[in-house]
Amino acid sequence: MLILTCPNCGADCAETELAPGGEAHLKRFGPGSSDDEFTGYLFERKNPRGVHFERWRHAYGCGKWFHAARCTVTMEVFGTYSAQVSEPPADILDSIRARRPGWEV
């Protein structure tokens, strides 16, 4: 069972209260981009075995989006953070490195 704390309201949310939004921090390629860039933006994902950054929405709750960092193997949650950032904040990276020595973004 995956439990994520929504940073917008502070509730500890069960996975069933959340809507998944896929991989986080994608760079959008739109009009004017190359076909390869646009294909990558639409279809190519890291899908890692390990540390992953994701978007989630507190659907059965405050309704707001947020980010989560977790391990796809162990389900360990390293932290949740604001949706209004384009990369993981330093405190999240610190908590990941504390648990996964040698891990690189």
Partner: peptide, 20 residues
């Protein structure tokens, strides 16, 4: 406050989301 309900003389106010 977030995740709280407050009661008054004429009713109750329930926190629904950061803007609702």
């Amino acid at each position: 406050a977030p995740l709280r309900v407050e009661s008054g003389a004429e009713g109750r106010a329930v926190w629904m989301s950061p803007d609702e």
